[in-house]
Design a protein around this nucleic acid. Structure first.
Length: 459
RNA sequence: GGCCCGGUGGCAGAGUGGCCAUGCAGAGGACUGCAAAUCCUCGUACGUCGGUUCGAUUCCGGCCCGGGCCUCCA
């Protein structure tokens, strides 16, 4: 099998061939740290985490970079509104982001560079671009001159004239061309800024990614990922900056991958529309793994509708997998089942991969021989590993409750189960059922099995 | 207005030129003191109108509907 990925550059799937088979390099646009991440923000994190895990399995070395934007006007405004320092806001938000993404079982990237640590490189690239005639300084700004790049618009498939025709943004008087965009802009005294050849200022939005990717991954690398909504202008402009500064026949990255949007009420979930649920609040409704599973039940390029019912279904689906896993504690197999591998290698078809997980479960549930059970359980764990699923202890999975929940303690439950056992032995089923009902009212469900009585918390 | 995506059974969501997705929910059955879990069975799914074809949900075209980008956005 070969890995096939959808490349936005040509809008089709193609075989993945790394520039260096011994070292795959991937860059994904990360968060602007000024507020809680909503579940839509988590989609690329989860999707590219699966890709990262897959690449690590297929290649000897993978370097995954996900940046942190810690210089931005939204940050400035929020810090002022909160009456806290910018540093405090960005540190606090980043810590929250890392905690949330960890709950979603996303591996930390190899590097999480911050824009503010790459100011020197940003200035350097701006200077190179000016030197090559692709950018110019004007009134304390440095602007990228779009007409200087003949094939600008290749990624997003739009040309300059269309953009200007549809542009709803005011054109600053110092722009030579309406499509020109900012590489560097001046800062007022009360705004964060760094000294530069053009005076005290700060970087524009797009250039930080060019600077960080170039520094950590090189002038060209394999995969650049992010949300569909970043194709234009963000990624288009990254390509413009990087390609004009460091000419190459590779448009910055060989493979440009974009995840679809999460919908909430059949509209794109977004901060500006206000129709979002933060990861943090959702973690009070369900385990992070359920959020992750839900995300992977849709193909990453398709829109995915986010609903409370959907989250419940995701939990039920995982319940089935964990239920089956209780048949054997055999460790993960070395090899991932072919069906699952093939699905993931086909442009990360996670919904198909999950359906194969369920097929393995059906087989496992039917298996009688212990050898078959342990083989299938270890296959299931192995496939789960590749997708960042099923690492929890099944018993713990079924006893999950939100942090800080006040409910019946385990010793109390054990005591009641003991009393019920005695009642059952005495054939006092009325009393036994009374205890069952009492526990059920507390959200505890009992299961009588051949091996004894176990309990779960109802979801 | 320009440029892109989509419309699959009650719901979610893959996929394919002719045969099975898968899960959740529902119905019936097996098992069970009860329950849970599990297994088995079931529901004539592919927006619409044409075209290509021996055959189309799958390919092509028109139409209708929905969404995204063009402005900060994952």
């Amino acid at each position: 099998m070969v890995l096939k990925l959808h490349n936005t550059l040509w809008r089709k799937k193609e075989e993945f061939k790394p520039l260096d088979p011994n070292h795959v390099r991937m860059y994904v646009c990360g968060p602007t740290v000024y507020d809680f991440s909503h579940i839509g923000n988590a989609r690329p994190v989860i999707v590219f985490d699966v890709l990262y895990r897959l690449l690590k399995r297929l290649y000897p070395k993978v370097t995954y970079v996900r940046n942190v934007t810690d210089i931005d006007d939204k940050i400035n405004n929020r810090a002022a509104a909160n009456n806290e320092t910018i540093r405090n806001l960005t540190e606090r938000t980043l810590a929250q982001y890392r905690a949330d993404m960890g709950q979603l079982l996303a591996l930390p990237p190899d590097h999480e560079p911050r824009a503010t640590e790459f100011i020197a490189e940003i200035i350097k690239i701006a200077q190179i671009l000016i030197g090559k005639g692709h950018a110019y300084a004007a009134e304390g700004h440095v602007l990228f001159n779009v007409p200087s790049m003949p094939d600008y618009g290749r990624l997003s498939g739009r040309n300059r004239d269309e953009m200007i025709a549809g542009a709803r943004v005011d054109v600053a008087p110092f722009k030579r061309d309406p499509a020109d965009f900012v590489l560097w802009k001046p800062s007022r005294e009360d705004q964060p800024g760094w000294d530069s050849p053009w005076g005290r200022g700060r970087p524009g939005w797009h250039i930080e990614c060019s600077a960080m990717a170039m520094t950590l991954l090189g002038e060209t690398f394999d995969i650049h990922g992010g949300g569909l909504d970043l194709i234009f202008p963000h990624h288009e402009n990254e390509i413009a900056q990087s390609c004009c500064a460091f000419p190459s026949d590779v448009p910055m990255a060989r493979y440009w991958m974009h995840n679809g949007m999460l919908n909430f009420g059949s509209e794109k979930m977004s901060k500006s529309l206000g129709n979002f649920r933060t990861v943090n609040e959702l973690l009070r409704d369900a385990p992070g793994e359920a959020l992750r599973y839900y995300m992977l039940t849709g193909h990453y390029r398709q829109p995915l509708e986010w609903t409370n019912e959907g989250l419940k279904e995701a939990r039920s689906g995982l319940d089935r997998l964990y239920q089956a896993l209780q048949a054997s504690d055999a460790p993960a197999a070395k090899d991932v089942p072919l069906s699952v591998m093939a699905a993931l290698e086909d442009d990360l078809n996670t919904p198909l991969a999950i359906s194969h997980l369920h097929e393995i479960v059906t087989e496992l549930n039917k298996a009688m021989a212990p050898a078959d059970k342990s083989r299938l359980a270890s296959e299931l764990r192995s496939a789960g590993d590749l997708m960042g699923l099923l690492r929890e202890d099944p018993v713990a999975w079924f006893r999950w409750q939100p942090a800080g929940a006040e409910s019946l303690g385990e010793t109390e439950i054990a005591g009641m189960i003991q009393r019920r056992l005695l009642a059952r032995k005495a054939k006092n089923f009325a009393e036994a059922d009374r205890i069952r009902d009492e526990l059920k009212a507390q959200g505890v469900v009992l299961e009588d099995t051949a091996g004894g009585t176990t309990w779960k918390r109802a979801s």
